[in-house]
Nucleic acid binder design. Structure first.
Length: 503
RNA sequence: UCCCCGAUAGCUCAAUUGGUAGAGCGAGCGGCUGUUAACCGCUAGGUCGUAGGUUCGAGUCCUACUCGGGGAGCCA
């Protein structure tokens, strides 16, 4: 084989006209008598390889014809541009060598249930959707590190085993540490605060554990969180940091992963729109919106939309069912069946939304100042806006002990949540930290925590206390939001959920 | 912890409201030189989640349990 060189599928565009060898796996194949179409994947992309009878030895032609999906192989041929082919290039095959044949690969190109795919997560990695999400997750992580590293932040690794309670005592995973109890970290914030007093600008980035009994598409018991902490900054300053940071992440994904976003069906237009400044509302503003006519009108309109959607789906179902009763071609019947399955599941989803709409409207209308915002309240607020929204100044009683009390209104704290449009509600939350020794000590006592456990934390207020602030960004929720993925569990390689850990 | 929905072939789903278990995909064999979740023909594949109950008769109705999905609370 002359001029034969090993290349990756991502390099095909630079090798048009040359004979190259790819190493990969058989993703899918179609045969049509004397021609075969093999889709090969190699980790960098997909390539259709054309095998024509007569251009390869007959034994090889027959071997490839019966090769099972996900068999590994090397394949050689001339690269040519071809618009009809996935990726725009294809290989005119002259030779191939099977490295390891596979048979009965369980994941087929047809649809599968969530549970089945999770049980086969080790194989599901290989499918297009998971591959695209994995690439985007990588870009998001890279963007997070790049943003902080390029802006003078120092990475501080905070402990995973800890005695600190950062959020809620109810959601701790306890660990037996040589006979005495410790728990897995819920946040690195308290530790990273001490580092901020040394380095000025710092961040931690690692796994976080919450034993919340939450079985929803927004929850994992183990997830990744990045937490910057900055000395000498106020609430406005940290908001500005957060919107620049989130915008940078989105821009990096748009720059590096546009083809993956397209494959996933993400809303590119909406992502292009993610630029500073974001909307800023106080908690009190949002309560007014939820209680007011505007939210009522919005929800009523949404209910109308849902009902007409339902009507459309039902009409289509009736139409298809009518066709199924008559005399039609078998292939048409099959296509209809597939569409019916799809429509019925859509109908189910719309029905749930229609059922929830009045409940959410009631919750919103009857929302009283003082409670934390519920999931549905966040969804309503985020759906009413086309860009991310900061909600600031929550009631002190609903928030963590370390948040700084607003000196002009001691009922509220200087905190914020970032709600993203049409997604997972909250992806980021943060606050200015209480920097007054006496006020912080009082809050620790109020929360029923032991002051001696926090003596080191109080020291930070004793020796040169400064105004400082920080936030935490949930990695998987961010990836889910950007990719438009419905389930957060598809956005981490090996998800850990309440009552469920596969491998 | 609470509420709603579900469990039928390896996978995704049907079964005309209680009357002998079906289809597509996948697998195997054959046909087809441009397929895009290809198409066409044939073959194999089932203790209807488990345990009881009602009935002449249960995939279908009732009870309990197990497992799964969605949501609430809580949260990133």
């Amino acid at each position: 084989m002359p001029n034969n060189s090993k290349v990756y599928i991502s390099q095909l565009k630079d090798n048009v006209g040359k004979e190259v060898t790819l190493s990969g796996w058989l993703y899918n194949s179609r045969a049509s008598g004397k021609i075969q179409f093999l889709i090969i994947r190699d980790g960098t992309g997909l390539c259709q390889c054309i095998v024509e009878k007569g251009k390869v030895p007959d034994e090889l032609f027959d071997q490839l014809k019966h090769l099972g999906r996900e068999s590994s192989l090397t394949i050689t041929g001339a690269v040519r541009q071809e618009a009809r082919s996935v990726g725009g290039f294809e290989l005119a095959v002259t030779g191939a060598e099977v490295v390891s044949p596979a048979a009965d690969y369980p994941i087929t190109p047809k649809s599968h249930g969530v549970d089945f795919l999770l049980k086969n997560r080790h194989l599901h990695f290989r499918s297009q959707r998971q591959w695209c999400i994995g690439k985007i997750r990588h870009t998001v992580i890279d963007a997070i590190r790049r943003y902080f590293n390029d802006n003078g932040y120092i990475l501080i690794d905070t402990p995973i085993l800890t005695s600190m309670v950062g959020e809620d005592k109810q959601s701790l995973f306890e660990v037996d540490y040589f006979g005495s109890p410790l728990h897995l970290t819920q946040t690195g914030q308290l530790h990273v605060e001490s580092a901020a007093m040394s380095f000025g600008k710092v961040y931690c980035f690692g796994p976080t554990f919450r034993a919340e009994k939450s079985k929803t598409r927004r929850h994992l018991t183990e997830f990744w969180m990045v937490e910057p902490e900055v000395a000498f900054i106020d609430l406005d300053g940290i908001l500005e940091l957060a919107e620049n940071f989130v915008s940078f992440i989105v821009a990096q994904v748009l720059q590096n992963n546009s083809s993956q976003l397209e494959t996933l069906g993400a809303d590119l237009q909406a992502l292009e729109n993610i630029k500073p400044p974001f909307y800023r509302l106080t908690y009190t503003d949002t309560v007014d919106i939820l209680n007011g006519q505007k939210a009522k009108t919005f929800l009523a309109g949404q209910l109308q939309d849902l009902k007409s959607q339902k009507q459309q789906i039902e009409n289509r179902i009736t139409e298809l069912e009518g066709q199924q009763k008559g005399q039609i071609k078998q292939w048409k019947r099959d296509k209809n069946t597939a569409e019916l399955v799809e429509l019925r599941s859509e109908l189910n989803e719309v029905d749930t939304k229609i059922e929830n709409n009045p409940k959410h409207a009631k919750l919103a209308a009857e929302f009283v100042w003082g409670k934390d915002l519920g999931g549905s309240d966040e969804t309503i607020i985020s759906q009413m806006h086309d860009k991310p929204i900061f909600v600031t100044h929550y009631p002190k009683a609903a928030k963590a002990f370390y948040m700084k009390t607003d000196r002009s209104n001691d009922k509220v704290v200087l905190n914020f949540d970032l709600l993203v449009p049409d997604g997972f509600g909250e992806i980021l939350g943060g606050s200015a930290r209480e920097d007054d020794y006496d006020l912080l000590a009082a809050r620790i006592v109020e929360f029923g925590l032991k002051i001696e456990d926090y003596s080191w934390y109080l020291d930070l207020r004793k020796y040169g206390s400064v105004p400082h602030a920080g936030f935490g960004l949930g990695l998987e929720r961010t990836v889910a939001w950007i990719t438009g993925e419905r389930h957060i569990r598809q956005c981490i390689p090996f998800p850990r959920m309440m009552d469920k850990v596969y491998i």
